[in-house]
Design a protein around this nucleic acid. Structure first.
Lengths: 347, 347
DNA sequence: TGTTAGCACTCTGTTACCCCGAGTGCTAAA
DNA sequence: TTTAGCACTCGGGGTAACAGAGTGCTAACA
């Protein structure tokens, strides 16, 4: 469909525009080493490329700019997997250099490094808490009427909530209850906790504990873990440096969108497959992101869970580099998190 | 020093400028109801006020703008404690409407509400974790070579850290160690934990536990709680809406400064006294904040600790309203957190 | 002596205009 | 098929003109 020469020209146009953010003209193209024909020839080819919709003009007599279709084609067919610089590689490895045992910590550092390497905004979604299983439940009395309930999961996540209980509740009742909860609920995924508490435990508790309903209610509330997981960000402000957002209104629109986390969550939550997904401009179906591309890497974590890793940048993004970085980091993360999570499945 | 008329004019100028962000001219002033003299008279007075340094011109023939000295005078001598709107009050009370038992939760909500009410950026610093005392230490084994250590403090804060230990360490050894730690360390402020662990516990552990040094090292790391506390933000992006930051470079400078949390921490950490402190423009001694004022409210929490609550806005800030809001909220927070903290001191 | 009207002057922001440079499309020649 | 040449277009930068808002000063007034 496209001649070799057209491919070459398209490639050079996109590469150049990604670097400079300036429309690319025929004359400047013909001066490049890669391109041996005169500007007139280039002009003819550009005219064809424009007709096919791969590039467009910002006004009648301006240079050309890649269209979304152009970027799409570029990403689908013209991306040569670019070798990462040694520097980048060692930066990424530095995340895992220290022996870290907390998922949150690793994930947060990943987000930070990724945003620093790319100068874009990074978003990381760790494994789903909801699928964590209860490892141990504990209650630590704090004051006369309050205590801390602590749930430790098999992956080492600790969830704690303070709650109050009627003052006439006896300490031994609480201990008894905690024992019951542990006997019955260890191994339950957090997502089922609330239900099982009400359905299975209620009867059991009724039999053994006075005032069971208040306790039950307290616990039910504790065990209502948030519906979706925390997103970790890196370089939230980085988009400020992109010339496409020198207009403060566009910037505000985007920032507001980023802050609305549930919205963003839907955009990057793990998809069916594993691997890299690129969404360009309007493909994101969001006005605030019309000038943005979102590259998401979904990676497996032991026990069938998935994590994802995303970079939000202008459509004029360094696709090749970002994809290489994401591929590399998602591989490493996959291993590191699987280590944390997999090991603990044994027990 | 200032005549009544000059006071009046200064007041009106500042009020007007705070509202409109536009330089105020003599003609528009003389049209106001409060002001009964001609524009010429006003001009004479403004000339005097400028000579005294309370207002300044942006260029030779522009209207006047309050100077930092002007704001300072306004804040120090002309602020009439403004009654809050019922709406604001109920918004603030809504923070405490539900019975919440987590400091973090309350503090985060406070920051959010405060930023929404003011359209500025709010920063809240909760009570110092370092002064929390150990209530209970627990270890939950996770996999063969790793476990979670959990420290619960008297205020209900839960700190957890995953750590690894040599595989040949016996379960009973760990239990033994935990018992020892609890016997000796309950009641210790977190800030002393690390030291005491090394100085007092080392000898003790040596006597009772094989491989004590590895365990000790693991625990020491866990108990290294971060040096200063987490800051909670509300409306980080709100400054984008202020006309003084329509220049994206100024905005970037400010945002970078906000992200550098340790820097900010020094600006708002509790000062000697209790109450409201206003820092205007260059008084903050920070280039990024030249056009900003920072209002900090420091409030007491039971047990001699302090919290602080700050609003970062343009120098052209609604001082009166913000101060009223801060006064009110810091009172409520003081009570609420004291409740959480005070009660627990009993035990 | 304090207040005010009047006037000349100053500065900003907007609009209109011009011109240059960069780019295009088309045509005709190689 | 490629290229040189040329007419045309558009944006951006610079300048001039002008209206509007404001000031400072002077002189008159109460």
């Amino acid at each position: 469909m496209l001649t070799d020469r057209q491919l070459l020209i398209l490639q050079v146009i996109i590469d150049d525009f990604i670097r400079s953010a300036q429309p690319v003209g025929s004359r400047s193209l013909s001066k490049k080493n890669e391109i041996q024909f005169s500007s007139a020839t280039v002009r003819n080819e550009m005219s064809d490329l424009e007709e096919m919709g791969f590039i467009e003009k910002t006004h009648t007599s301006s240079g050309r700019v890649p269209s979304e279709k152009g970027y799409r084609f570029y990403v689908d067919h013209m991306l040569s997997p670019q070798a990462l610089q040694q520097q980048d590689i060692s930066q990424i490895h530095s995340i895992f250099a220290e022996r870290i045992y907390e998922m949150e910590n690793i994930v947060q550092r990943s987000a930070k490094i990724l945003s620093e390497l790319t100068n874009y905004t990074s978003i990381v979604l760790g494994p789903n808490l909801q699928e964590n299983r209860v490892k141990q439940i504990q209650v630590v009395p704090l004051t006369e009427g309050t205590a801390i309930a602590i749930i430790v999961t098999d992956t080492g996540h600790v969830e704690s909530r303070r709650f109050s209980f009627p003052k006439d509740l006896k300490a031994e009742d609480i201990e008894h209850m905690v024992r019951l909860l542990n006997d019955r609920l260890v191994g339950t995924p957090l997502m089922e906790l609330h239900d099982r508490l009400y359905k299975e435990m209620a009867i059991l508790l009724k039999r053994h504990i006075a005032n069971y309903d208040l306790m039950l209610q307290a616990f039910a509330e504790i065990m209502n873990v948030p519906v979706h997981d925390k997103l970790f960000f890196g370089g939230k402000m980085n988009m400020m440096n992109q010339p496409e957002f020198s207009d403060i209104d566009k910037l505000r629109l985007l920032m507001d969108m980023i802050e609305r986390e549930d919205n963003l969550y839907n955009l990057i939550r793990p998809t069916d497959g594993i691997g890299i997904q690129v969404k360009i401009g309007k493909e994101n179906e969001n006005v605030a992101m019309e000038n943005c591309s979102l590259i998401t890497a979904t990676f497996p974590i032991a026990s069938g869970q998935k994590g994802s890793l995303a970079i939000l940048g202008p459509t004029r993004m360094e696709y090749s580099r970002v994809i290489s970085l994401l591929n590399m980091l998602s591989g490493d993360l996959s291993k590191a998190l699987s280590d944390l999570y997999g090991k603990s499945q044994e027990s």
